[in-house]
């Protein structure tokens, strides 16, 4: 019942990941760790589409960013408890995902990606104009809400555990989705879409459900991020943010379970150490991108898995 379908190597990797999450705050800034977990969950949500359905959504930051805004707004203006803020971020992102997904899924391949990008740019534009997002200022000075209405999260370690739990639940949920009867159909669609259609699958319905699930998790990840940092801003809905999550997956390994997490760790660590040097972040990311495409296409985890013949 509780094995969840993990293979042995995956269970070991999972144990390592949980251990790192538990021990890391003793060695690194908890806020830094939380940032990684938010982006790792976002990357995992993206991977659900690119890795398991073969859909390249090139505007996923729209959903992450919308989660940021909603959660920040609910915490600041409505005084909602933390878990409701995060959930709300997910729900609104998923609702948006349902509409945008329904539009984009009608098209295949590169056209799908271009439509998702266009809709994300449209979302960005709305965010600069609408009153509730605060335009260029964003939503600032968001007070940390209470968890369940009474547990204070003002201490970084308190919110750390909440983020850790949400991250792990989200991570396991994605694993379950991949290894569900639904996930099996997704794999079939990715492998051979015409054949899946010829077997009577209305593939658009499956893609749309996957899209909604992915955007829900992306939105929840965004919702956590704005609570951690107390701010929601335009930078989370930019196309650069969408590009970064593509890069994260490329680097970590698309279609692997742990790849997006490893990718998020590497990207955020680089950004942390290189940020004092300004444009070096962008240059390094560019170089990583080139290296991924030219040398290790399967990403870090993908290459490791291939080397040791295990699925990670």
């Amino acid at each position: 019942m509780f094995s969840l379908g993990f293979t042995r190597p995956q269970l070991i990797a999972l144990a390592v990941m949980v251990a790192v999450i538990a021990i890391a705050p003793m060695a690194v800034y908890p806020v830094f760790m939380m940032k990684i977990m938010c982006f790792a969950l976002f990357a995992c949500a993206f991977n659900l589409l690119i890795g398991y359905v073969g859909l390249l959504s090139f505007g996923h930051a729209a959903y992450f960013g919308m989660g940021c805004y909603l959660s920040a707004y609910a915490a600041k203006h409505w005084g909602f408890p933390a878990e409701i803020c995060v959930l709300l971020g997910g729900i609104v992102a998923a609702a948006m995902g349902a509409v945008f997904g329904a539009i984009a899924i009608k098209r295949q391949g590169i056209y799908f990606s271009m439509i998702t990008l266009a809709l994300a740019q449209f979302t960005y534009f709305l965010c600069t104009q609408m009153a509730f997002t605060g335009g260029e200022d964003g939503i600032q000075n968001v007070p940390r809400p209470f968890l369940l209405g009474f547990l204070s999260l003002s201490n970084d370690m308190a919110i750390y555990w909440m983020v850790a739990v949400v991250f792990l639940v989200g991570f396991l949920a994605i694993f379950r989705i991949i290894h569900s009867p639904f996930g099996q159909v997704l794999k079939a669609i990715r492998e051979n879409e015409p054949r899946a259609i010829s077997l009577g699958y209305r593939v658009d319905d499956y893609k749309l459900l996957a899209f909604v699930l992915s955007t829900f998790i992306a939105g929840a990840a965004g919702g956590m991020k704005s609570l951690v940092f107390g701010i929601a801003s335009l930078s989370d809905v930019t196309w650069q943010a969408s590009g970064q999550i593509v890069l994260t997956n490329l680097l970590g390994g698309m279609g692997t379970v742990f790849g997006p997490v490893v990718g998020a760790v590497i990207i955020n660590t680089l950004e942390f150490y290189l940020s004092p040097f300004g444009s070096w972040v962008t240059i390094t990311q560019g170089l990583i991108f080139v290296a991924c495409v030219m040398v290790f296409r399967r990403g870090v985890i993908g290459e490791l898995g291939a080397r040791f013949k295990v699925a990670l």
Binding site: L4, G5, R176, I177, H179, S180, P181, F182, G183, Q184, V185, Y201, D205, Y206, L209, L213
Partner: peptide
């Protein structure tokens, strides 16, 4: 069961 994303694939 084709849309059941919350169940284990064991049911298959």
């Amino acid at each position: 069961a084709s849309f059941d994303f919350w169940r284990s694939e064991e049911v298959l």
